[in-house]
Design a protein around this nucleic acid. Structure first.
Lengths: 207, 207
DNA sequence: AATAAAAATTGACCGCGGTCGACTTTTTTC
DNA sequence: GAAAAAAGTCGACCGCGGTCAATTTTTATT
């Protein structure tokens, strides 16, 4: 039987993930040692390292699973026709929700996502592409509808929104905004971005 | 003499910083052990921990020194009258320059600045205030000149620019933009922010 | 079924960051 | 200036993340 090994590997990987979810949730990431994790998963310590390169990789694997689910969900009921502002807030807030669920996971994940180690770049770019494939269609449609300027690069627009999201999450971690204000803050920032920071010609009468 | 102890402490602190700059530059942050650092500074390992709480704190202390110098410099020749776009690009690019000088320092610093550990929040907020005291006057003046909308919160405007800066730095770390494109990218993003992502009334003829 | 080759598992081991109680130096008290 | 108190220094020690040579398990070959 040629499949035994493959099947077992998947099983072991799952066992590690399950143990990780359990122990990380119970005692936190830092307080859980690799040895405990291995014991809980019913394997030896060294074996873990033939499934994950580092301890944090285990965490990221979990985060990416969650994120992949989320993106699938978002893609499935992708309604391109609702206003872009509302839609973008919706998308980013659902990601933000994952972060608030476990602050410590979230911190490490954001650190690694925004400013990744050189070694993790490939994996990072993969995730980014998933993102783009979700956002580009939405933004392109919005351009066609006249909600977004057509002379702007889609990449720059995506980046613009993402940058504002980063800022909001950063502000949350530093305690500058509480969880319940996150959404309104993000919406305000996005609206600012759409309308522009400088007085528009049509608004000159107010200035 | 009551001052002996104080003076010595400052001296020792400096010795640690000097040793850190030397060794971190020579062999990198991760490859330098606390024990080596202590030896280079001519003190015992444990003593380091009565000056810095963690190894990374030594790094941050260095970064903050650099940043404080930079901010002093920027405050000194603060010309409030040049266009806000140009001025903001200038300010953020000079900070970005510090980051490019040592990628690894930069990564840790950005990770910690944007998404700080709970324990470091106080220190973080202090730094943020220095920032605000630099930016607020500039932005307020720009509002008066009519370069920025007066109906927007200064905090949100600051955040908006900072968010775009975060995005640009993130894109640099992920290799999406090379060093020489950093400035033009930042300028593009800032201009987008000023003009707005949606078609302005005065531009409707182009749509 | 026997044997060889390949792959996976393991835990003793390493080096590191960080701790802590023992020790030394400085300051205060009288 | 002697003794007590306070502050500072130190390195053996701890637990952890991560490695690797030895071993076991699976697959390929005949």
């Amino acid at each position: 039987m040629a499949g035994i090994r493959e099947a077992k590997k998947q099983q072991t990987r799952q066992a590690i993930m399950q143990a990780a979810i359990k122990l990380f949730s119970e005692k936190g990431f830092e307080s859980t040692s690799i040895e405990e994790l291995a014991k809980e998963a019913g394997i030896g310590k060294g074996t873990i390292y033939s499934y994950f390169q580092t301890k944090t990789d285990i965490l990221y694997a979990f985060c990416e699973d969650e994120l992949a689910n989320l993106h699938q969900e978002l893609t499935d009921n992708a309604d391109c026709e609702i206003p872009i502002l509302k839609r973008m807030v919706e998308i980013y807030m659902s990601e933000f929700h994952l972060i608030t669920e476990n602050r410590e996971f979230g911190r490490l994940f954001m650190q690694q996502t925004a400013f990744p180690r050189e070694a993790d770049l490939n994996q990072h770019l993969e995730n980014e592409n998933i993102y783009f494939s979700l956002l580009f269609p939405l933004l392109a449609k919005a351009q066609e509808r006249g909600e977004l300027r057509k002379d702007l690069d889609l990449l720059h627009i995506t980046g613009h929104f993402y940058g504002l999201y980063l800022l909001m999450v950063s502000a949350w971690f530093t305690g500058r905004i509480p969880t319940e204000e996150a959404e309104i803050t993000l919406e305000t920032l996005f609206r600012q971005a759409l309308e522009g920071l400088q007085p528009s010609s049509s608004m000159e009468r107010f200035v």
